[in-house]
Every structure is written in structure tokens, then in C-alpha cells.
Amino acid sequence: MDKPAILTVEKLRVSFDHNVILSDLSFTVSRGGTVAIIGPNGAGKTALFRSLIGSIPHKGSVTWAPGVRIGYVPQKLGIDRNLSVTLRDFLSFKRSILHLPELVIPEVLRYVHLGEDKLNVPLGGLSGGDLQRALVALALIGNPDVLLFDEPTAGVDLPGEERIYHTLHELQDRYGITLIFISHDLNLVYRYADTVICLNRSLVCFGSPEETLNEDVLDKLYGSKIHHHLHQHE
């Protein structure tokens, strides 16, 4: 990898009470790269994300390149359905916190292909796919250098998911954003990631999807033989 590192993780260890969630995790992410994090449920993927943004206590070191701006797209929002906050309010919160002009809102909506007619819809009234686009739009406010994208587990259909990955890929081509995403869909991983981190409480594999995702690794990750067929996307 010739490009400079935007993130260096060394001997990361996360535990809750006496339960070890992640241990001895070390890897580097290059600037402009697309990194997929895969692993079974409970492998510590979201815990890894949350330790990368300093949300949960951890041991070891997480070092971002100086001045890096992070955009974080969580898996879901813990909100009540009748929350009065509209999409416009939601985007305006971050816009005003970062002291940015009004016009960034239509701009980020265009990036994620979300119509301005949705601006007055309360967050609880948005469909799963639209809410996810809204979260990506929010993360894009302030021109982040890196986007951490936690795949939603509910409320987004497959075509919707395809579209969002396509959008993220476009943004990356255009602005050189580093993308680190959690995914359950190996097809998406093959298609969009240049590096894959396989996680099962510790590092199982690290490298390009083509080189690292062999049957042994998938077996080690998911515990049963998964035969992945790439032909439909080649």
C-alpha cells in the first residue's frame, strides 16, 4: 500500500464487564481506500466502529491521521416514531453546529439522491431506505475525509442497499473519501471493497477480497461452508 495511512489500529481490545468483545486487533487503512468489515453476528463489528470514534472505552491505540474529519452512519437511530424532528431539522442541527451555510443541505441531499420534498417529513415518517440516505447525508455535512458506514439490519430492501452502495462509491470516486463499511453481503464486499477485514472477536483475515476470502476463511468466520459465487457480478 503506497498511500499514506488515514487510520492505524494497534492491539485494540474491547471488553464489557468480563466479556471480551475484541482482542489483539491491529490493521491500517490507507487514505482513499474502501474497507469492508465482515463477520458473523456478535463478532464485534459495531463495537469496532464505536471504538474507532471513541464511543466506548478500549485498550490499545486507535490513531487517525491529523485533522481527519469522520462521518458516521449508524445502523439505526434510537428514536420514537412520533419524534417531531423533521429531516430538515436533523440536517440543520449538524449544519449549525459546524457553522455551515444553508446551501449544504440541498447539496448533501443531491449526493444521496434524496428529494427536497422529504425535508419536512419527520424522521419517524421516513422509509428505511430514505432514513438511511438521510443518515448518509448527515454524515456528509462538513466534508468528511472518512465515512464509517454500519449496514442497517432492517428496513432497507436489497435494491435500496445496492443503490446506497452505488452512491457511496460515486462519492468516493468524486471526492476521494475513505470508506469503511460493515456488511453482511459478500457480493457488495467483492464489488466495492479493495480491502476486507474479517472479524470474529479478533482478526481472522486482512487483505483484498479476492486474495483473502477463500473457503477456509469463510468457514472460520461463519462456522459452516459458504460457497460464494462471484460469477453473477463478474
Binding site: S55, P74, G78, V85, K94, I97, L135
Partner: peptide
């Protein structure tokens, strides 16, 4: 008001927004 609401809706997003 904006900072409170963003951090109550999603502390993680608030944190990455510098709050």
C-alpha cells in the same frame, strides 16, 4: 438546542460532529 437534540438522538453522530 441543536447540540442537545443531536446528542440525544445519536450520541455517536454527535461525537463525530465534534460535540
Amino acid at each position: 438546542k441543536d447540540k442537545f437534540t443531536l446528542s440525544f438522538i445519536s450520541p455517536d453522530i454527535a461525537r463525530t460532529s465534534g460535540l
